[in-house]
Simulated assay, not measured.
Amino acid sequence: MLLTISDMLDEKGLLETHALIETLRWRDGAETAGSTAKHVKHNLQADLSSRTGVKLCKQLLVTISAHPVIRAAGQPRRFSEPVVSKTVEGGAYGLHIDNAHMGTGDSRIRTDLSYTLFLSDPQSYAGGELVIERAGETLSVKPDAGSLVLYPSSSLHRVAEVTRGARLAVVGWIESTIPDAGEREMVFDLENLRASLSPQLAPQSAERLILDKVIANLIRKFSAA
């Protein structure tokens, strides 16, 4: 399942995010890559250890974790700390697979879903598409600033070379309460059905109660211990 959420950050949210990012320091992105990915990772990564960086992380996590589509599609248990990346002219991130686990100690999570939150106007840079390999097809996405792309962490993916301008993005990972992608998609389909039928069904109608029951029991059945 690949989803593009177009309203993750509105204009005000984008302006606030950019204002915070402008004060951050940058380092070589390869420093934080795995043993294989570091050979194909050619970008910059923001140092988020400052007070401003901590504030930015908190704001991003609150916004992303509260979005109804993230909650319905991801059934999140935990979120990683977000990563802010900048890819300038000549930079790219070659084909790779995300690590199965991210973080250390209590913050260590299993990566079921990955996301990229695009922060740059697509007209301000050339290249920089997020390219995701799936069985029998290759998907290339470059949405508007403020849009978030959610996709399975199990997918091979890359960031195409930026040939003009600079690409700013936030990336992160979600550990789901439902590890199996097929079961997670089944619940998401039912959540969408419930949302579309809500205007037509009274909260205590038999149909709505049965649908609520099925969704709750499937989540209970599919959830990891």
Rank of each mutant, 00 (worst) to 15 (best):
L3D: 00
L211T: 05
K58G: 11
C57R: 06
A72K: 06
N192R: 15
T177H: 12
Q204M: 13
G34S: 13
L20S: 03
D212K: 14
L201Q: 01
K12L: 07
F79C: 13
V141G: 00
A19H: 10
L197C: 09
S35Y: 10
A73Y: 00
Q75C: 13
V88W: 11
M102L: 11
R77L: 12
V131G: 00
A169I: 02
T104A: 14
V69R: 10
E161F: 06
G74F: 03
P199S: 08
S114R: 04
V171T: 11
G105N: 10
S205I: 03
A73M: 01
E31N: 14
I178F: 07
A92S: 14
L24P: 05
N217S: 15
S176R: 03
A166L: 09
V88G: 07
H157K: 05
E161T: 10
R164N: 05
R108T: 10
S49T: 13
F118V: 04
A224G: 11
Y125T: 01
P122W: 08
R25S: 14
G128N: 01
M186N: 05
V84D: 00
L156I: 05
L14M: 10
E89W: 04
T177R: 12
L61R: 12
G136E: 05
S153C: 12
L2T: 06
I215R: 06
I21D: 01
D7L: 08
V40W: 02
R167Q: 03
V170I: 12
D98K: 15
I97F: 15
